[in-house]
Amino acid sequence: MPFWTRYGLKQGKASTKWPSEGDDGQSGVLGMPRFDPAKCQSGCRECADACLPGAIAIEEGDPIDGSADSLGASRGGARLKVDYGRCVVCQMCVEVCPTEAFSPSNDWAFGVRRREDLLWARPSGVAAGVGANVGAAGARADAGAGAGDSAAEKELKGEIRRIFGRSLHIRHVDAGSCNGCESELQALNNPFYNLHRLGIFFTPSPRFADLLLVTGPVTHALRNPLQEAYRAMPEPRFVMALGTCAVSGGTNGGGYACGNGLEGVLPVDLYVPGCPPNPAAIIHALLMLVRRMPQRVRGGQIVGESERA
C-alpha cells in the first residue's frame, strides 16, 4: 500500500484548472456542424436525406428565393429547418453537402435554457424580431425559473441560487442511454476534470439532489421510475436533459419502446444536446445552471466571443 501513496504523490496534480484557465481537454473534438444558408444550392436536399435523426428538415412550399426568410434558408422553393436539439454530431451533412453549407466545427458548448435556442435562426433575426424575445426570455431564464413556475417559486429558486449558487448536488437517471452519456458523466470524476473542485457532487438519493440529470430517450419502461425520482426531489428542483437523446430522442427516440426524450415527460431547465456532450460541455452546462458561466448559443449558433476558433 505505501507504494501507491508514494506513486500518487509522485504523479503530481493531473487536474485542469479549466474553465478559469488552462486546458479544457477537448482538442480535436468535433461539435455541431455550422450552417451557412447562403451557400445552399437551389433544389438540393442532400443533407436532409443524410440526417438520420431529422435535425435537418425541408419545409416545402415556402416562398421562392429570398423573401420571408427569417428562420432558415429559402432556396429553390424550400427552406431548411435546422434543429440542433436533434443533432447527433454524425457529420453526415458535412460530408454530403456539395457546397459546404454545413462545415465541421468545434462548437460543442451547446447548453441552452430554452429549447428554441437550438433552432437555427439568422443572426440578424436574433438581434431584431426574434431577438427581443430571446433577450427577455434569456433574462427570465437567468433568474432561474423554468416555464410555468409561479412567482413565489421563481423567487425561491433565485434565493436558493444566491445561497447555494456555487454548489450543486446531482441525481443522475439513465432513461435508456447508449452508455455514451454515462461514460462522459463518469469521466467528470476522473483526476483530469475532478468535478469536486467546482463544488459539484453526484448524490445517490434524489432527496438530497438539486438537479435531476437525465440521459437517454426515455424508454416506456423507465418513464415511471424517472418521474418517481423527480417527485422524490425537494423543491425547488432543476432538470437537465443531457445528450441529444434526452433533449429530443435523437436517433434512438420514438419507435415502439421509447418516447422522445424529456418532451412531455418533465419540465426542463437546461438542454444540452451532443452525442454525447463531452465532459467540458457538461461542466459548462452545470456552471451555466448555477450562473457561473454564460450561455453561449442562441439561434443554433455560438454568439459573442468564441473561445474556440
Binding site: Y7, G8, Q11, A14, G25, Q26, S27, G28, V29, L30, V89, Q91, P104, Q186, A187, N189, N190, P191, F192, Y193, N278
Partner: peptide, 20 residues
Amino acid sequence: AEGKYLEELAKQLNAEATGS
C-alpha cells in the same frame, strides 16, 4: 484515479485522431 486518468488520456488521444 490512475486507471481513470489513463482512460482520459486515451479518450483525448481518440479525439485528437478522429474528432470523437
